[in-house]
Amino acid sequence: MAPVIQCENITHYYGNRLIYKDLNFEVQKGKILGLLGKNGTGKTTIINILNGYLKPQSGICRMFGESMDKLTPQTKGRIGLLLEGHIQHSYFNVRQIERYYSRFFPNWKRDAYFRLLEKLQVTPTQKISTMSCGQRSQVALGLLFAQDPDLLILDDFSMGLDPGYRRLFVEYLKEFVESGNKTVFLTSHIIQDMEMLIDDCIILDYGKILLHKSTKALMEEHPGQTMEDVFIELTGKY
């Protein structure tokens, strides 16, 4: 079976600073891959490359077999994208943003969005710009659930979330992925709760991959330790 995401020999520099050299990885259908690393290790960069928002110096990424710079509208419709910081069109209110996105996706699940938002103390006419980061994360997640994409790409979804919202986000996400044959590629610099969610993990350091293996194998190799402990052991505290 062809992988949903395929990155081959990605090399990228910002000026003279090497971000990665010959980065290779794949994400198989139905799997959740977590790309973990400290700030500045190039997690957002790979998401930008994947979606065609940045040209790497060399290498190629494919999603559903299509090259990153030639993604068709049909393929884009199968991919749900969460930007770093849960960025959305904040000039909309809760109802308007649902109305806006609903027309782009044929399988739009309006109820999934409003069911998630019922749990928040927000009114349908509340503007997104007036919400807290946690509330915005739920709006963004609700929109992704309603879109019902085959592939979810989440860029540092834990950024700015307190532990309560982070746990909530992880639980809803897990439930969503298990409900259908969904594939997820996510990045995070917060490792806490990750072992609950991801099937495979890549730990990035500056310029290179430190580790790429299944979460199960990783946890078996480090009995009694959390993923966060393993991460710190590999990357150092600072």
């Binding site: 979606n51 928002y53 419709g77 991919i79 930007l83 960025i87 959305q88 069109h89 782009f104 996706f105």
Partner: peptide, 18 residues
């Protein structure tokens, strides 16, 4: 300006349209 703020244009260009 709102599209370029926080690079929201990425969301707009990610829509399933050319």
């Amino acid at each position: 300006v709102p599209e370029l703020q926080f690079k929201r244009l990425k969301l707009t260009l990610h829509l399933p349209l050319p």
